[in-house]
Design a binder for these strands. Sequence first.
DNA 1: ACTTAGATTTCGCCG
DNA 2: CGGCGAAGTCTAAGT
Lengths: 226, 226
Amino acid sequence: MRLIVARCEVTYTGRLTAVLPEALRLLMLKSDGSVLVHADTGGYKPQNWMTPPTALEFEGEPLERIVVRKFAGKTEDRLDIRIAEIVSDVTHDMGEAAELEKDGVEKHLQELLAGQPHWCGEGFRLVRREWPTDIGPVDLMCRDEEDGWIAVEIKRVATIDAVEQLTRYLDFIRRDPAMADCTGVLAAQQIKPQARTLAESRGLRCVEVDLMVLRGEREPELTLFV
Amino acid sequence: MRLIVARCEVTYTGRLTAVLPEALRLLMLKSDGSVLVHADTGGYKPQNWMTPPTALEFEGEPLERIVVRKFAGKTEDRLDIRIAEIVSDVTHDMGEAAELEKDGVEKHLQELLAGQPHWCGEGFRLVRREWPTDIGPVDLMCRDEEDGWIAVEIKRVATIDAVEQLTRYLDFIRRDPAMADCTGVLAAQQIKPQARTLAESRGLRCVEVDLMVLRGEREPELTLFV
DNA sequence: ACTTAGATTTCGCCG
DNA sequence: CGGCGAAGTCTAAGT
């Protein structure tokens, strides 16, 4: 990884046009071809960047210009870095960094709900996970106490997109006469109000689930009015 | 900005739990409180990070541990960096970096079309931008020469999602008897063929607009057959 | 190569 | 402060 601290002006042309006026910034050139331009503020995002694969071109001695090119389809993306002054320029061999181990993403929610489908609805039994349809798999397919079919879409945060997704699945599932009365449940850690509005306007049930409760690490909230 | 190249192990707990095994990485500590952990590969994204506002805690001399805390509502987010070996540790005063000037995003398109709604359709007058519905605001609400209502959805690149979005808005708008005959227009710099097909099958008009023409920097194309 | 869906999405705007 | 939608979203997985 090459780290250059320099006073520079950066121009991006591609999907849009963007110009960064001359200022002191960090240029991060990764060994996979990534180029990131970071300011001292601005948080997570680089001010400008190019994702791999890229072709780099260096001009000047000392360095005066870096051109980063990418051939993405018909249009060429280009990052043009004009360097006015170099404050620091170091290269570190960092080798291979181990992968990130994550826990708590949507997949885990699906695993937990598959094992305890009653959190999706009273008396639900799991038929199978990743129930296939012509347009992709539904997260869970369940049956209720009256043997009715229920397709369950699981999200960490459910937005309107999730409602559309579940609606599409149901459209296809119901084409099978045996499942014409299949209903839908949207299960998520958090359901956005507008997603709930849309879901209920389409007759889809909404269930908010708690990861801690699913893991048995917290008691479910008591129902005050029975 | 403080740049530390170090062999370290990083643990994140918050919205999920993630562990990075010990390896050589770049730690970027920005003056706004951002902390980014970058590997030499992996492109654009940091392997781990925390966005401002944060509280940093340093332990050991030489540095052995950095704890980054964030108080986001009810749950505390925490990044725990355990440093095994420091390869480099430098701080640069980068001052204020000028803002990024972007050009060609959807907002500009909406501003320009709001000022010249006739590009969306003959004789259109703007009623308001960001017309509210129960499921979110429509980009433009217009009336035509016969005082008919038209909802306009604006996109940089219109895909099927944009058609679905406009359809949803119309479903809700038309529930008001006074607007039951509201029609829809999809306006975009580029309309994908499948989006156009779906839109027209639903009776929605499609308009491709040219940013240069809207700005008056280019003459509109002549209509060959009048 | 293209499409789809997830993401600790992040970010900005408007209520 | 929360909700919503755009983003040069990025990225990984499936086709």
